[in-house]
Amino acid sequence: MQPIVDVRSLSKTYKNGFQALKPVTLTIERGEILALLGPNGAGKTTLISTLCGITTPSAGTALVGGHDIVQDYRAARRLIGLVPQEITLEPFEPVINTLRFSQGMFGQRRDEAMIEKTLRQLSLWDKRKSRTRELSGGMKRRVLIAKALCHRPRVLFLDEPTAGVDVELRRDMWDIVAQLKADGVTIILTTHYIEEAEAIADRVGVINKGELLLVEDKAKLMARMGRKTLRIDLRDPVDAVPEALAAYDLELGEDGASLLYHYDTRGDGTGITRLLQALTQAGLHLRDIHTDQSSLEEIFVGLVKEDAA
């Protein structure tokens, strides 16, 4: 079966010469959930905007449902729903009208049953007559999602769907994503949050500086990203890692006042208990301990370096 989204050497260079997207080649299977991870300005939104028709590609092609996004834009865009990153809503219209507008724009006869279903699914039915400007930020985001869903897209783009939303909405969003996946909808989402990718994605793509560095099965990538660091602050600084602790592959912190222990949360055992016992036996006095998960940015830096090597 042909992939639902087939991107071939798609790139975007703006008039001022800025290359926002280096040639990207990527296929996404029907019903798959792909999370695109990357720091701000990495090109995630550019990729999505180009596929959705908001910006025109500089080179390369892309097919959505077998339809070229430029040559056959009508057929391609009919299949697409887009939830943009910024909350952009007509402020004065009642919620229900903005959904009717979206249905019309996507070439569909008005379908009040679908509108009601979508509004109920997003807990917006009671708010259907409210003007969008009267709604809270979280509610506005729900409206944006409802607008994207009410024409029954087969491919849904979610650009930072959970940036700045409360826990409840995030949970709802994940439920909706799961429901859509069950209905065979393909979902491409961008996110900063590694937990989000972990929670819902099948595959993860990493974008940095306009370049798609890798697309990998979630489980494999998470294993690479699952490293944590235990930092042990010592009461009395040491000159070197004590001989007795050589087996733990410790790193000496700055000024010798702390020891760093890297471990993998996914392993069978982290070795922390044994390490702490060994520290006590070695006669070291602990002042404080804390753990750090490598931040997404650090992981990206790691990936970029790896990529360059």
Partner: peptide, 9 residues
């Protein structure tokens, strides 16, 4: 964005 991403000419 909605105008631009819709299947309209």
């Amino acid at each position: 964005f909605e105008l631009l991403s819709s299947p309209v000419s």
